[in-house]
Amino acid sequence: MGCDGGTIPKRHELVKGPKKVEKVDKDAELVAQWNYCTLSQEILRRPIVACELGRLYNKDAVIEFLLDKSSEKALGKATSHIKSIKNVTELRLSDNPAWEGDKGNTKGDKHDDLQRARFICPVVGLEMNGRHRFCFLRCCGCVFSERALKEIKAEVCHTCGAAFQEDDVIVLNGTKEDVETLKGRMEERRQKAKLGKKAKKPKAVESVSKPDVSEESPGPSKIKTGKPEETSLDSREKKASSAPKSAAANGGSSGKVGKPLCGATKRSIANSEESEAYKSLFTSHSSAKRSKEESAHWVTHTSYCF
């Protein structure tokens, strides 16, 4: 039977009963929630931020997570709702004067009291160790106990004086019910922000696409209503009528006779009203008609021989 050496087995060693449900130590759970970062599992150090679901993080760990969103990274699902640094709020915490930290434990032989909290409520003085419910304001980041907000009801922050609403109050490390309500508020807030951005985009596009009516687009009086064929015929007639006028103007101003038009009669230069100096340039002038005696036989006045 395997009982060599005189050993006697007991009933619980031979008969397997139902497994006992392992209970989580509440004190250890509170220490992990309020003293350690949810993402990196390191001790919380300033600057400390909180998400819209009320979880605490180190700001450096959140920035590293946003820069490197790899699937292999541990605890990525816990921060899947954090899309940018705007989704977290930096907390304004009040130090606990009774907390010494690691100052007296220089040799490592002193017991650290983890039940003593580093931060307290600035209004009531309760320690932020998980025994009491704490919350922060999303608009300014100030942290208070829930008892302080209930006892001293105000629409203004007790520390900085910033105005807030009920939606701005977020419970830190709340229960499952608190997380579900905060998640619903977060989704509604993000949907409103998306709708607001979509409503602003068409207005901006219309303002850019609409040009100035006076400069670019012609008015109804300036638009031509005539047919293209009629306009082309009118333009041809105007060009034909302007051509002889320009030719006559050029000939009168320069003093030179151009080519005669198709319908004009030919006139001799001798009978024209030009000057004698201009007429003497041509062979039809009387000065060009010389006798053979007046001119040498090897020289000719014109380009042809007599």
Rank of each mutant, 00 (worst) to 15 (best):
R147L: 15
R147H: 10
A148Q: 00
A148Y: 06
L149N: 00
K150W: 15
K150V: 14
E151G: 03
E151P: 00
I152H: 05
I152C: 05
I152L: 11
K153E: 10
A154L: 09
A154E: 05
E155K: 12
E155A: 13
V156T: 12
V156S: 02
V156L: 12
V156F: 10
C157L: 04
H158N: 08
H158V: 10
H158G: 07
T159I: 15
G161A: 06
G161C: 05
G161Q: 06
G161I: 06
A162N: 04
A163H: 09
Q165K: 13
Q165A: 08
E166P: 05
D167E: 11
D168V: 13
V169R: 07
V169I: 15
V169T: 07
I170E: 01
I170K: 03
L172D: 02
L172Q: 03
L172G: 02
N173G: 00
N173F: 07
N173S: 01
T175D: 10
T175F: 08
K176H: 14
E177R: 11
E177A: 09
D178A: 14
D178P: 03
D178I: 15
V179E: 03
E180G: 01
T181W: 12
T181V: 15
L182F: 02
G184W: 06
R185G: 00
R185A: 03
M186Q: 03
M186D: 01
R189K: 05
R189Q: 02
R189M: 06
